[in-house]
Amino acid sequence: MLTFAKTFHTKRVLIPYFTFGDPSISFTEELVREAVQAGADIIELGMPFSDPIADGPVIQASHQRALTTKPAISFEDLFQSIAILKITCQVPFVVMTDVNLVLQFGISQFFEQASKSGLDGVILPNVPIEEMSPYLAYAKQYNVAVIQLVSYHCSDERLKKIVDSSEGFLYVISSMGTTGIRQTLSDQLPAFVEKIRKLRDIPVAIGFGVSTPQQGRDIWAYAQGVIVGSVLVQIMAQQYLPQKAIEEVCLKIKTFKQGMLV
């Protein structure tokens, strides 16, 4: 958990999202290495799931590609890749997964193996704070951060609970609905982030819909982290040459990073 503090302390943070195994595990590993070279500060990997309810069409399709390549893709595959990647990539890794995959793997086993692999954080998008306690208990035992998702419609009472139980950073959903590319983000975000800051000094990253470097710049004016998913994953759908796809993703990451310097 120190790693997150260190990452967020030094600079504005860019967090690219990739779906693990899209279109193959070896491709994801190479993509992650290159993305870190290009300036990614934290890597978020999505575990492919048959029914990702919080995802829009772009990320749904990427889950399907991964499952087509390897229908029995598992956390064992994921943790193995993370253990290998952590040797060369000196950045925190977080994993986003549907809770059903964790339940079938076993909650305790999941956090134990996550910890062994060097995974830094877990995001469970369909586990709200009301259902979170069993996961928090194991996460604590194995020293893995559970990064909570929160929407700006969250009531004050619930927000306090979420902020209090958060570790690493807080993931604020930029707009209603699913993941996906959006032209505009809600104008309620700056005030909402300010509200969080008054409750607790915890880094805030904003995701869901962030697709242009300009949006990234706008967010960095009031929050520390920007999460970019669909706009990168879309490249994988459109670019059939693997090396070309990696180059394009890295170029995108660099454009976002340049936005930080302005």
Partner: peptide, 21 residues
């Protein structure tokens, strides 16, 4: 089925050993 989470609640779900529905 095996207990799992689908569409917002925990119930018996037909799924693979990994948890894909």
């Amino acid at each position: 089925g095996v207990p799992g989470v689908l569409h917002g609640s925990k119930n018996y779900v037909l799924q693979t050993p990994e948890g894909q529905v």
